[in-house]
Design a protein around this nucleic acid. Structure first.
Length: 301
DNA sequence: GTTGAGCGTT
């Protein structure tokens, strides 16, 4: 005789009744059929008021001593590892990525007065809409402005409005354009490694892990020492890395650019190795070791 | 101490 167990994906949702097996156990696969991704069940025990897990053995969920008379809630992986606003932000960026056209990009602001500060830049462009980032590019030695900067808006509509007109900042006409660097570079991705460009020195390993950990498990973060303005992040999932490629992300107020960890100017390191057809310096060759155990691939892929 | 088309420390 089979019994129906009330199972819900969330404590506030209406339960679905799922049939047990003839031996009184509930198959995890039956639960998964209704709640894809579920890894187990839990329930709130009336006496202890605490959440209790249901015993799971070889795909069979075993009833508590009281039987299947509670409402059981599905457990999902990583459920407690993530704050709710994190998951929100996560799914947000996922849907935004599907509509890349509607996503704001960094904008370059040309023709700024030499004296305009980041604060003034922000003050001016904030009048159009929420600003996520504002930077004035300066000479690192003198600290003087180079006369241009970068901004990023939260809303695409705002971006369109700002792009469609000329601007007056501190008494000087300025142009706002889509940066040249925004082109679609190599979309190929061979593993989970991405290049993080335009990094600033105040961004640490931990900052990168914290920020990019939202998108997937990170297996490595590499920041060259001495500082060189870039880093590499390796994700467990190549798909995650792929999805992030060619995007701009704001980490600690700096817009960093993510791109494929493939060297830009396919360097000639593999020449003379006698690959058929002149060895096109592809990923297959990159793991070959040079003399002295040196990795021939400059990017350590 | 300057400048005025451009593009962000691979």
């Amino acid at each position: 005789m089979s019994y129906f167990v009330q199972v819900t994906g969330d404590e506030n949702e209406e339960p679905i009744e799922i049939p047990t097996e003839s031996d009184g156990t509930l198959l995890l696969s039956s639960v998964e059929a209704q709640f894809p991704g579920a890894t187990g069940l839990k329930y709130r025990h009336p006496a202890s008021r605490g959440l209790r897990g249901v015993r799971l053995h070889e795909g069979c969920l075993h009833p508590p001593d009281e039987g299947w008379k509670f409402v059981f809630v599905c457990s999902f992986p990583k459920e407690n590892k993530r704050k709710s606003d994190d998951t929100l932000e996560n799914s947000m960026s996922k849907t935004q990525r599907m509509e890349k056209k509607l996503q704001c990009s960094d904008l370059v602001v040309l023709g700024l007065p030499w004296t305009t500060t980041e604060k003034e830049l922000r003050a001016y462009f904030s009048t159009f809409g929420e600003l996520l980032m504002a930077q004035v590019k300066k000479d690192p030695k003198t600290g003087k402005s180079k006369g241009f900067g970068f901004i990023k808006f939260a809303d695409y509509e705002t971006q369109l409005r700002v792009l469609g007109q000329r601007h007056m900042v501190d008494g000087r006409h300025c142009d706002v354009r889509i940066p040249n660097s925004h082109g679609e570079a190599g979309t190929r991705q061979f593993n989970g490694k991405v290049f993080i460009g335009r990094l600033t020195e105040d961004i640490s390993h931990e900052d990168l892990r914290t920020y990019f950990g939202k998108y997937g498990e990170i297996t490595d973060v590499y920041i060259p020492k001495p500082f060189r303005g870039f880093a590499f992040i390796t994700f467990l999932s190549p798909e995650v890395a792929q999805a992030l490629c060619d995007e701009d992300h704001i980490v600690k107020g700096t817009s960093v650019h993510i791109s494929n960890a493939t060297p830009k100017g396919s360097n000639q390191q593999n020449q003379g190795r006698g690959g058929p057809g002149g060895g096109q310096g592809g990923p297959d060759n990159w793991n070959q070791q040079g003399p002295g155990g040196q990795n021939m691939n400059p990017l350590n892929m």
